[in-house]
Design a protein around this nucleic acid. Structure first.
Length: 354
DNA sequence: AACATCTTCAACCGCGATTTC
DNA sequence: AGAAATCGCGGTTGAAGATGT
């Protein structure tokens, strides 16, 4: 036995709403509110509609200050970043975009943003076709050829100074494991803090405090923050005196960004040297052992997550590989662009923790 | 102009969570 | 405590419009 239907399907109108129905519903709610009972509402105002349908119509269309279409680049970035970090939690994503509804964002993602992203990836792949090296090996080789400080491949995105990154410059992450109500509310609490805490993308020196955004245990402190960096389009960090603090800094020629971490990674990262530079923390290592450890942490951390649903995991695989290729691509770009005689990586201060 | 195919998005559906009785 | 009612969410559908042939 399934659950009882919420309304009498036979006597309920379906399909597009007429202007008259809209007017009735709008007028009633504006005057009386919803009364806390959507199921009873259509009967009160003489609408032959299901209560759920009324609710949806109000929330997605009639409610004041709703925006439709015309998504800005910044909104694109936010949606994209949040999707990669938290998955298809459209209501949470919508909460970060005033005037947008979860339905709108979901539609926008499914019909445009996703394609835009996949199109980027395809171009990337074509550009790299013919290259026989495995991605990881390629990174390592490049690293081996570099005598300078090695950007911590694990979770650190690299991009050239003054080069506008195409989005998403995002962490290679797995979906958050939100299995319990507590986790969910914790995640929500964190996300709520997102609003208004975006970094100013124009700042050359900007702090991105990063930790694993999905490790709820790291987010217990009241001082924890979530940040979105509109410049790098990377996001979602937790920062508190009790959490591990990692930040980004902009070195001459190259900007290193710590952009989040895979589950269980943050604690591992805490073992790696971070140097405070003004108000920034710079993560670095030129120790191959440490580098391998970072890579191992990163790879294992980002592949051991227990996906909560099969359908979600497949889309996450897509997105993860996408982000991964972006990272590789950025790294390659960086390696090609940085002059060989550049001393920026070799600056003594970046070698302090051998 | 006519038809086929693709894209968009409003609306529906089912299900888990929460609240009420 | 447990069943029923309701809410809220995310996935899916299908009509309508846009675009291609």
């Amino acid at each position: 036995m399934g659950r009882a239907p919420c309304c009498d399907k036979a006597n309920v109108k379906k399909g597009p709403w007429s202007p008259e129905e809209d007017a009735k519903l709008k007028a009633y709610i504006e005057q009386h509110g919803t009364g806390g009972n959507w199921i009873a509402l259509p009967h009160k105002i003489g609408l032959k509609r299901c209560g759920k349908s009324c609710r949806l119509r109000w929330l997605n269309y009639l409610r004041p200050n709703i925006k439709h279409g015309g998504f800005s680049e910044e909104e694109d970035n936010i949606i994209c970043s949040l999707y990669i970090s938290i998955g298809s939690r459209w209501s949470i994503i919508a909460a970060q975009l005033p005037g947008r509804t979860d339905n709108d964002i979901k539609n926008y993602w499914n019909t445009r943003l996703k394609k835009k992203l996949l199109g980027k990836q395809r171009k990337e792949q074509q550009a790299r076709r013919g290259n026989s090296c495995l991605k990881q090996e390629m990174i390592k080789r490049e690293i081996d050829q570099t005598t300078s400080v090695v950007p911590a491949v694990a979770g650190i995105d690299i991009m050239m100074n003054n080069q506008t990154p195409y989005w998403p410059e995002l962490p290679f992450v797995t979906p958050p494991l939100v299995s319990s109500q507590q986790d969910q509310s914790s995640l929500k609490d964190l996300l709520i803090k997102l609003g208004g805490r975006f970094c100013d993308g124009d700042h050359h020196q900007q702090s991105i405090t990063a930790a694993c955004p999905f490790d709820a245990s790291l987010a217990q402190s009241q001082d924890d923050q979530l940040l979105y960096d509109s410049n790098t389009m990377s996001l979602l960090s937790i920062a508190s005196p009790t959490s591990m603090n990692i930040s980004s800094t902009q070195l001459p020629n190259t900007q290193y960004n710590v952009i989040g971490a895979a589950p269980n990674m943050s604690q591992g990262l805490a073992n790696f040297p971070f140097e405070q530079l003004n108000d920034q923390y710079v993560a670095y290592t030129n120790n191959h052992q440490q580098l391998e450890e970072l890579e191992r942490l990163y790879v294992s951390g980002s592949t051991t997550g227990n996906s909560t649903s099969a359908d979600q995991s497949s889309s996450w695989e897509d997105m993860s590989s996408l982000v991964y290729s972006t990272m590789v691509s950025d790294y390659e770009t960086c390696q090609q662009s940085v002059p060989q005689d550049s001393t920026s990586f070799e600056d003594e201060r970046y070698f302090g923790h051998q």
